[in-house]
Each structure stands twice: as C-alpha cells, then as structure tokens.
Design a protein around this nucleic acid. Structure first.
Lengths: 208, 208, 208, 208
DNA sequence: AATGAATGAGGTTTCATTCAT
DNA sequence: AATGAATGAAACCTCATTCAT
C-alpha cells in the first residue's frame, strides 16, 4: 500500500506497514513502539527519527496526507463503476457492491484503524467525513440522477437515496469484513436479496 | 445501569460505572486504573480487591454475566414493542426504530465499549453474537411470520428480511448515535424515508 | 536539611536529599533519575509518585515553598547577628561575614544548585530575588541607619552601602566556598583586610 | 570571536559559534548535538568529523588552546588600560571597570559557559586560574606598586588590594551582566559609588 | 569533506499490581 | 474492607555516535 508513495525509504515504508498491521490487529494504544520496530526490522530509535511520536505515526497513517493518497485510489476505483453504463440501477448496485467489497478486502487493516481510532480524534473525523464525503458524493448524485432520468428510480432527493443505500450496503460490508470477519454468511445469496429489497424500495413501481 | 444489579456494594458499582464511562470515552488500553479509581472516588488498591486485574474489570463489564444482566433488560425493552399489535409492518418498524434509538441513547457508553473492544476479544464476540442473537432473533422471526401471515410482507426466509432490515436500521442508528454523534442529520425525515424504502422493498406489491 | 520539614515520608526526604546532592555535584541535566533513585535507595517509580517530573523535583528543591522553608532559617540566622548590639560597624561586619560563612558551609549543595540552575529558570530568578531580597533588605537598612545614627558610617543611601558591602563580601564567600572550594587562601587575614578596606571606605573620616 | 582564529574552515567556525551560544543559553548537558548542527547549518555527522565527541567540542571552546586564543586578547585588552598613565588610582579604577564591562558584554556567552561548566571540570578550573591569573596578575601588581609609589595607595601587599578590588568589581560586573542581566540597576551612579568606597578604603588617608 | 539515515544505550515516565497498615 | 505508598517492568522517547553514500 505504501510502496510507490512519495520518496519514502525502505525502512520508512516498513515502519508504516508494520504499524498499520499492528494497530489494526491490536489497537493503537495496545501496540508498543518496540513491537513495531521489531516487526519492521529496525531499531526503535529509527521510528522516532521519522515520526516525532507514536501518535504522529498514527496520524501519518490516517492523516489528510494519507487520505489524499488513498482518496484518489478510492475515486479511481469507484470511477471504474461510475464510468460504465449499466442497463438497470440494479446492475449498477450489484457492480458497486462488488467493487466496494474488493476495496474493503484490500484495505481491511486501514479501515479497521479508522473505525477503531476515529472516535478518539475529533479533528480527524471531520476531515475524513469532508474529504471522502465531498469527493465521492457528487459523482454518486450524478448516477442517481442518471437513473432517475431513465425513469428507473423514484423521484426523491438523491442524497436520501444515497444515504439509505450506502448505509445499508456499506455497513453490511463493514460488518461482514471488518467487524465480524469470521462469521460465515452466505454472501452471494445474501447480497442478492439485499439488492432485491433495496432496489424494490427505490425502484419506480410500475403499477402504482 | 449497575444500580439494582445483584449484591454489589456502592464502591463496586462506582468502580464499574467509572470504568464503563472511561473505557467508552478513551478506550480500554488508554484508560489507567488510577483514573478509574479517582473518578470512582476510591483508592487504587480498592479496585484490585474486587477485580483481579484491569482486564478482569473489562470482562466484568462486557462479560456473559453482564450480558445476562443486560440481556433481560434488552429483551424486556424490546418486548414492549413485540408485545404490542401494530396494524401494519411499517408501524411496527417505526416503533422498533424509536425503541432502539431510546436504548442506544441510554447505553451509549456500553455500546461504544462493545464496538471498540469486541474486535480484540474473540471469545467475547461469539458469546455476544450467540447470546443476544438467539434471545432476540426468535422473537423477531415470530413477528416477521406474523406480518407475513397477514399478507403484508413478501414470502422470503424471515432471517434474510431481519438481516437486511436490522443491518440498515441498526447500523444507521449506531452510526448516528455512537460513531458520529456530532454530525447533524434531520433525524425525523431521514428515518421516515428509510422506513419508506425498507418497507417498500419488503412489502407485498399489490399489483404484482 | 529536609528532616523536620512538613510531613514528608522517609522515602521522600531521601529522594530530596539524594537529588539535592547529585544536582549540586553534577548539575541538573547531567543527573539521571535512576542515579537519584539508586542513591536514595528507592525504586525509580517512587520518585514519580511524589514528583510529577524530574523538573518538578528540581523546582521542589529550589521552589518558593523551599525558599519559604529556608528563608525563615536565613532570617532567623541573620537575626542572631542583627539582634545583637555591636560597638562598631566593623564588629558588625566581622560577625556578619562569619555568620554567612557558616551558612554557606552548611548549605553548599543547595546554593550550588541555585547558582547552576537559576540562569535557566527566569521565573525562579525573580522569585528568589524578591523573596530573599525584601525579607532581608529591610533589616539590613535598619542596621545601616543604626550605625549612621551613631555617626560611624558616611551618610549615603543605605541601599548603596549594602550593595557594595554585600557584593564584596558575598561574592567573596561564594567564590571561596562554592565556586572554587579547593583553592587555598589565607582566610582569616584575607577577610580581616577586606573588612579593613570596606569599613575604611564606608566609615566616617574623623578629620574630614 | 572565532573569526580570524587559526586555520578553521567556515563550517568549523560556525559549529563553534553555534555551540558556544547554545551551551551558554541552555547549558552543556541540555544542549543536543543536533541542535548545534541545525543552528550551525551543517549535518549532524559533520560535527563529529571535526570534534571527536560533544565533550571534545566543549573542551575546545573552553580549553587551554582556546584560552591561549582568548588570553592574548584579554591581555591586549587590559593593556590598553595598563599602558596608559592615570593621574589618580581612582581614574585607573574607573577606566579598568569600564574596560572590563566592555569585555564582559562582548563575551557574555563564553563567560557564562565558564561559570556554568567550570565546577564540573576540575583540571580546567586549575588551568584557567593559572593561565589567566599569572598573565594578568603581574601586570596588576606593577600598577598597584606604581600608585603606591606615588603615595596614593596604602602600603599593603599588592595581592590583597587586588583581591579585594577585583572581587568587588568583577563579581559586581558578573552579577550584573552574566547572572542577572535583566535586573535594572542605575549603572553609572552605582559604579561611581563603588569606586568611591573602594578607593576610600584603599587610598592613603591624608590626615591620619 | 560532508551528509543524514540508522543505531542502541540509556533517559524519563507510566502504570498495573502488591502489601503493610 | 479499604487505603495509598511502593514497586519494577515496560512504555515512549532522546541523543551521541557511526557509517554507507
């Protein structure tokens, strides 16, 4: 994840990777800098040459800068879906969910840290909400309007539809992959039914 | 919360309450026993007279025993909704959501701890899932079947419907009250639309 | 020095004594808390139970509170001289110098710390100057006026006389006992001549 | 100060200057080599290319070699006063004090380091005392004898007179410019009175 | 000569836990 | 039961020094 970013030395990348993994696994407060150093294969002092403090290390992983590195990845990733033209909103939903699942699977550690540490860092929370929010929201609105234009989705403020759909799908995905990764649900079927229900709720009712 | 429970002394209740609040606020690992002692108004040593270790204190708060104390409260609480007869499934949903919001508001601290600490305690996770799951699930199934019997809900395995509805509503509530308590949404309207969409997705389509 | 002060435990007194000695000997920054702990015969953690930080330990030794403990000692000490009636101002000077030498000899460590660390602690400097200054200065003024009244000292503002006499004698004493304790001067004779010169400079010239 | 000295490169002079300033400001032990490097505008490693260790850097600043660099400056400086012929010993004293004040003002940092670090370096102390002592003392003796020859100063061993006068004036100057630079005294008047008293103490009494 | 990343010993500080009172 | 001083292991962090470039 941190491989091609900027001009980081191998050691720095190693430290970031080790810290990310350990923070995700055990939580920030329960991870010691000596563990990080050992896992990264560097001396403990080396960590502090690059990051003023343990907290600074966390913020670097999770900071605006990092978000700026990730956010484009996210957007580019999402755009793969947004740029395609789907016949029905259901198809779009299905593709979107598949896409998000892939993303979550690839970034479980980072997301876990976000979920775990966000509550303790007010400023960060706001930044995340704004940054990710604004960037992605506008694109999604376009999509909703697009399918509304095609007469496939009920006329309702796009934000509301996004919110309900996103709340349902994202929280479903997060719950499944980040919070309870070991619980075994029948994914395929489950998702299909979720799509069914959601799109039924959102779709224009022919005969109404 | 710990007031009428069992045979706890005042000090013990104070310790549990202080610990719960601090764990929720700062996280388990970032809370020191001396802080707990100060907040509870007892000496540091006193904590260890009642709880073998700090971890023991956490487990007590979050443990099966505690769940058994809380679970009945939860069930009793939920039953207020389940026991009533609602004309439509929509009414039921609305009441249920209102009921859950009240519950979450009253138990924010405890829920926050669950969310924060569950990932780090495998055994606990299973217990919570089973305990709460079994107890409540069966009742909910009955409700779904009830409204299916009345022809208001599509014929689909109750668990699926519950999962989708619960995932949407609960994660909505948790996000709103526990994870992002300071973000200001237009609650009333938002919930109403969510209900709309959900029940539309779940409801039997007249004209189909 | 810290024996009968307040309600300190034996350990605390030991820590203060050890720290005072080591700070004086090697300087504050060059003294490690582990050295202090070892010398005081306590665990390192014990130091931090009583003093928030190493700096706090220094400030305690050298602080207003400490000054308040020492200042009375100083004043009481000085008063032994001030309260007596001396025939000539020379006799007074002689007694005063002997008295200060005794004091300096008894508090070499503490004074050394003051001299070493004062330059780095602005606030402290002011406090020391004010505290000691005010308390003692007024008494000394009285003495000067007293001998001026007897016609033994030239009419000049008491403060100036005090400043010259004090600067000469005190800095002589400090240099001799604190800064260069190992240089071997012929004390008796040296002091006697100093008194000679000073009192000659200050005394009323008979034949003028 | 280190500008025209010897064959030092620009970098070396920069390091010495930065170190001198910082040692004076914060003390030797509290100054880090990285601070020195930053202030001098060189890499950390560069310091150790020129000076074996941090201690070596201090010793270079404060060492016999340095003293040999400074001592001539001091002597040359003092000689400006010694070489002139003054009508009265008072005039000489006045010129001498002015000269010393100029010197102290120009070398505050270095003097501060001497005062701060001397107590912790026995050998150094001896060297300073000998070096500066011998060089300057003989010249001063001549001066005293000179004014004794003119019948202006009492017959007393020159060293004693020097010691009293020097102790008074130097310690006055040091206190004023190095130890308590921010306290605001009325310099002119204060010095004049000091000269008055000292010379009265030392002068030959006409009418005795 | 100069750099600055890397080191690791050691510094300060925190904290869960024990124990004499 | 309750206290809180004491502990010591381990946490976070600093820094003089080395070394490959």
């Amino acid at each position: 994840m941190f491989k091609d970013d900027q001009h980081l030395t191998e050691k720095q990348k190693g430290i970031l990777a080790a810290a990310t993994e350990l923070f995700a696994e055990k939580g920030y407060a329960a991870t010691s800098t000596s563990e990080i150093a050992k896992k990264a294969g560097v001396a403990e002092g080396t960590i502090f040459r690059h990051y003023k403090s343990k907290k600074d290390l966390l913020l670097t992983i999770v900071s605006p800068t990092m978000i700026k590195v990730i956010s484009p990845m996210v957007k580019k990733d999402i755009n793969k879906v947004l740029d395609k033209e789907y016949d029905t909103f259901q198809d779009f939903l299905r593709a979107m969910i598949a896409n998000r699942i892939t993303f979550v699977k690839k970034n479980t550690s980072l997301l876990r840290i976000f979920i775990q540490e966000l509550p303790f860092h007010e400023e960060l929370k706001k930044q995340v909400i704004e940054q990710i929010g604004k960037d992605v929201l506008e694109r999604l609105r376009e999509v909703i309007r697009h399918y509304q234009g095609k007469g496939q989705i009920i006329e309702m403020h796009p934000d509301t539809i996004i919110r309900v759909a996103a709340a349902s799908t994202l929280s479903y995905i997060l719950a499944k992959y980040v919070v309870f990764p070991e619980v075994d649900w029948d994914e395929e079927a489950e998702i299909e039914r979720m799509i069914q229900i959601l799109s039924d709720g959102i779709a224009v009712k022919n005969s109404d």
